[in-house]
């Protein structure tokens, strides 16, 4: 359903909703995955992001998102200088991720406090985004709702258990998606919620001994 405010908005730093605002949102979501500003990042740009990214400030927008700036934050323009000043090591490269990847796609490998995450994200137009892969697991994250992501040992009843915890905490689920690379291997779960899940829900999930790590991501758009 199209909303009036999707049309008269977003308020954003130019010049391109896909190459600038969308790129910033990808950076913001990836920052959430490692729980704050990454110290190191390898940012690989594909397709139109690689071809016209510099002219559209895609590099600045991605770095700005990793720094925690939102799409309407004028500091995006100076994000590369700020990154250098803060001693952060972000490297940009051009690449081909795959022939059928969306033209505005990037792969980010980020590191913070010993945690590493590798993410593939695309900017779909009008500032909408989709993360399609996290650490090799296929996902589908849009950043339009508060989201819980976790890695758990593959075991029976895990989905029901987590849904039960969220129900106890009065968190309403919008979508839930489970993916694994191999049978019996770790499972990657993404749970989009109608309201922010809160620290106690997160702590209860983290407390499960078969949950290896969990992150809650704020919504970044929509």
């Amino acid at each position: 359903m199209v909303s009036l405010l999707d049309i008269i908005g977003p308020v954003m730093v130019g010049p391109s909703s896909s190459h600038t605002a969308g790129a910033c949102r990808i950076g913001l979501l990836v920052r959430g995955l490692v729980g704050g500003t990454p110290e190191k990042a390898r940012i690989e740009l594909h397709g139109s992001f690689a071809r016209t990214g510099e002219g559209h400030g895609t590099d600045k927008a991605l770095a700005g998102g990793l720094l925690g700036f939102r799409p309407d934050d004028e500091r995006l323009r100076d994000a590369l200088d700020i990154m250098e000043r803060e001693g952060l090591d972000y490297q940009f490269e051009k690449t081909t991720i795959s022939d059928d990847a969306h033209p505005n796609t990037c792969r980010l490998t980020v590191e913070r406090a010993g945690q590493i995450a590798t993410v593939i994200g695309s900017s779909l137009g009008a500032g909408r985004i989709r993360l399609s892969e996290i650490d090799g697991y296929p996902v589908e994250l849009t950043g339009t709702l508060p989201t819980i992501v976790l890695v758990a040992a593959d075991q029976k009843g895990s989905v029901a258990r987590i849904a039960g915890i969220l129900a106890e905490q009065s968190v309403n689920l919008a979508t839930m998606r489970l993916s694994r690379i191999e049978r019996g291997g770790d499972a990657f779960m993404t749970i989009e919620c109608d309201e922010p899940p809160g620290d106690s829900a997160r702590a209860a999930i983290e407390h499960l001994d078969w949950v290896k790590w969990v992150r809650t991501l704020d919504k970044v758009g929509g």
């Binding site: 049309i7 008269i8 308020v11 954003m12 730093v13 130019g14 909703s17 600045k60 995006l76 009008a126």
Partner: peptide, 21 residues
């Protein structure tokens, strides 16, 4: 011109067409 210089605009309906409205 603000949009092209990475200034703040309202994408209405898009950034590229943000000047008309």
């Amino acid at each position: 011109e603000v949009n092209a210089a990475m200034g703040v605009i309202v994408a209405a309906p898009t950034a590229g067409g943000a000047g008309v409205l």
